[in-house]
Amino acid sequence: MSDLAIRSLSKTFGGVRAVNEVSFDIKRGEFLALIGPNGAGKSTCFNMINGQLPPDSGEILFEGAKLNGKKPRDIWRLGIGRTFQVAATFNSMTVIENVQMALISHANQVYRLWKPASSLHRERALELLAQVGMQDAADRPSRELAYGDVKRVELAIALANDPRLLLMDEPTAGMAPKERNDLIALVKRLVIEKGISVLFTEHSMDVVFAFADRIIVLARGRLIADGDAKSIRDNPQVREVYFGTGKTFQKSGAH
């Protein structure tokens, strides 16, 4: 069955069709990469799904329920987690408090005024941090973390509401290649264990080709290709709009 169904999604900015009649599905447990050159409409597409932008037309269905017009926080409550392109945490909190915040929200305890927040869901938060390998940094101020670690903490936060779908906007941007592979491998392992579906955008082709179950390609707001790594790599249209001559990627693409 399909977890997320996008039907004829469109969005126009000042006369430019940023996203033009885009349709695709994500099946349960699928690891789907959304790629395309800068300005292709990836972020716009993404932001419509997570509720930050209202679509002009088309439908977004999650497990059959329509997401159009819902606020990001309501979409989260339906069981869709997300991470951001530029990772950041709540900087005035410790690492574990960041995760606890999400757990508190998930348990609908936000408006409680009495019991200290630091005592709530600490065990569960430690478990989530352990899953991403960050339990040792639990009580450090989150703003002191290295960028790669911030990404891990963000992942732990995104998993706090036991999502069934995870939206990841350029999850490896700003990370070293080794860290990239580690992080995506970690995500892949977690989603297989938990049966989560993932939609992610990505510039790092080695990551995409190594891990994605399926790849869809956007260019100038339209979906131009949909298939596995091999068919995308061999697609002449994709090559033209995206890869250039491939000179800088001969070696890194060969993973």
């Binding site: 700003g174 510039h203 995206y242 890869f243």
Partner: peptide
């Protein structure tokens, strides 16, 4: 200069 831009631009930067 090659961070976060499409492969085509990376080539141009090189």
């Amino acid at each position: 200069p090659s961070e976060g831009v499409a492969p085509l631009i990376v080539e141009l930067m090189a």
